[in-house]
Design a protein around this nucleic acid. Structure first.
Lengths: 211, 211
DNA sequence: TTAGGTCTGTGATAAATGTTACTGTAGAAT
DNA sequence: ATTCTACAGTAACATTTATCACAGACCTAA
């Protein structure tokens, strides 16, 4: 286990890894599990060991707007930010591929900041990269039209899963972009005509996404 | 001066305040100054002592999308996040009301995190509140239509300036919402008919904004 | 006063997106 | 095989937003 933690978080010092193993608790969750809901109080910082998580912003009307993915070696920035004051979560986290996570009680998160340089740097880097990712999300919805956003969405999905097939229904995609299924269907059809994708049932093959 | 810094940043310890005064440099900028451009390297962390700054996300086509305001007692989260690694700025900062800022060299920002508990807490709280603010921006553009976004924009402006007059042209508002002047004019006209505002040249009076 | 600029209002039109309604197809369940 | 359901395609239409065109109001500078 020590070996694998070190592999996933190569920048952590050995003492930090030992401390994490001593104090953290390893937990598994199945795909589909909601790890965190908007408005819930946060009690742990979450490190992703294995699997994938999607982070959503929820609208009042029940929309689930996709913000970004969390992958092994990453951590939930919101959980880090909020733990300090045990604030409510501003986002919703859903497991999309069976995960193993390391749960770290909030008091330790704060304590380690002072004791472990590598933890401090990890936290700062997590803040930075998540902030940038959210800024990119703002770019997309503020400056781009739906067809560009759809392309970006598909590209990001393929980056995250490391494959060129998207196994999602048009409805699921529409929900995560906060638009309607018909719009997604139409735009995908146009992309197929442009030779960018091949459409099958419950699957979209990405063809020329070598941006 | 010590007195006034303590007033603006009440949570800072006395030692921290003394250290800031010793190492920081106080600078004034006129309204209209661009304090930071997208892509510039960041060399300082910026604390706002007096005045107001607007933070924008710039689009490739020259759009200037308003993210949030910075006010006395606050700091630029981006400058804090980026200084650690001397990264490029992802945003543009414009002075909208003559400011006095305290510039803090990036090495100190990092050093103080370990030495001053009140600085550490301030930085974490800055991250948290800015992150939340950006999430609210995402909400607006992802879930709301232009008329709601315009109302929110006006409300935020009046909150920031503490008055109920918005001295901006329709064109300026349109730019910051990334829409066109005509749309803003029309929506404002409708709001006037609903009794929410009174329209004058270069000025919008907010009437029933007691949300 | 006149000329030129900026700001605002508004109609006409275009384009993008959202909504409704209906169809057919594939696969699962019976 | 039949039925049921989720999924996908698409036409028709509504709404929202963007663009183009133009006119009048106001301000400033000559």
């Amino acid at each position: 286990m020590q070996q694998s933690l070190k592999t996933i978080f190569p920048n952590f010092s050995n003492e930090l890894i030992a401390t994490i193993e001593e104090n953290g608790s390893l937990q598994d969750f199945k795909a589909g599990t909601i790890l965190m809901r908007t408005g819930q109080y946060i009690k742990n910082t979450v490190l992703i060991i294995k699997g994938k998580i999607k982070i959503y912003r929820e609208g009042e009307d029940g929309g689930e707007f996709l913000m970004y993915y969390l992958q092994p070696g990453q951590a939930c920035a919101i959980s880090m930010i909020c733990t300090a004051k045990s604030e409510k979560s501003q986002i919703m986290a859903k497991v999309v591929e069976d995960v193993t996570v390391m749960m770290i009680p909030l008091q330790l998160m704060d304590k380690w900041m002072m004791e472990h340089r590598s933890w401090y740097e990890f936290v700062i880097e997590t803040y930075r990269s998540r902030f940038e990712e959210v800024l990119e999300v703002v770019d997309n919805i503020a400056f781009r039209s739906m067809d560009e956003r759809l392309e970006f969405y598909l590209k990001r999905h393929s980056d995250a899963c490391g494959c060129s097939e998207v196994n999602l229904s048009h409805q699921e995609i529409a929900t995560e972009l906060n638009t309607s299924r018909e719009v997604v269907s139409r735009l995908l059809k146009k992309m197929e005509q442009r030779g960018l994708v091949k459409l099958n049932r419950n699957q979209i093959e990405l063809l020329n996404f070598n941006h």
